[in-house]
């Protein structure tokens, strides 16, 4: 039953999408389904041509919250999104593991309220489109 509903969901979404990143709101909706036991806060849409510098987003994160960042890549693009959470010049966590594979999600247990940056680029500088869902983990 659950599997059938998932297929139905994908079909419905496919009908409303034109395989174009212009329909990024649908990708946000799909991606937001994958945040698990977390509450949606914000989304960031990224579309970069090949060999582009990383796109930067700034966010204020609050002490005491555990944030979860989930990345969904758009269909039809080769690039896989690499995100990195930083504070100033200090890189904190990335979804790209040292072995070249991707983590399903990255978390950040915030101990200090302040401004943080999310950098998004695409692996091997390929063209890509993706959405990043920022949520907090519900205790």
């Amino acid at each position: 039953m659950k599997h059938a509903l998932k297929i139905l969901s994908v079909l419905l979404l496919t009908l409303t999408m034109n395989h174009s990143f212009a329909q990024s709101d649908e990708l946000v909706n799909v991606c937001a389904l994958g945040i698990g036991n977390a509450t949606y806060l914000k989304d960031f849409k990224v579309k970069l041509p090949a060999n582009s510098p990383a796109q930067k987003f700034s966010v204020i994160l609050t002490k005491g919250f555990v944030y979860k960042f989930v990345v969904c890549n758009a269909e039809g693009y080769e690039g896989k999104a690499v995100i990195q959470l930083s504070e100033g010049n200090n890189a904190l966590v990335s979804n790209l593991k040292p072995d070249g594979s991707f983590a399903e999600a990255v978390g950040f247990s915030c101990q200090k309220t302040g401004m943080y940056n999310i950098f998004c680029s695409f692996k091997n500088n390929k063209e890509g489109a993706a959405v990043i869902i920022m949520s907090y983990i519900t205790k």
Binding site: K68, V93, E104, A105, G107, F108, S109, K112
Partner: peptide
């Protein structure tokens, strides 16, 4: 730490 496929960073600083 890695928790259920999620890489989790904890700074452990104190504000």
């Amino acid at each position: 730490v890695e928790v259920d496929g999620m890489l989790m960073f904890k700074s452990n600083e104190q504000q």
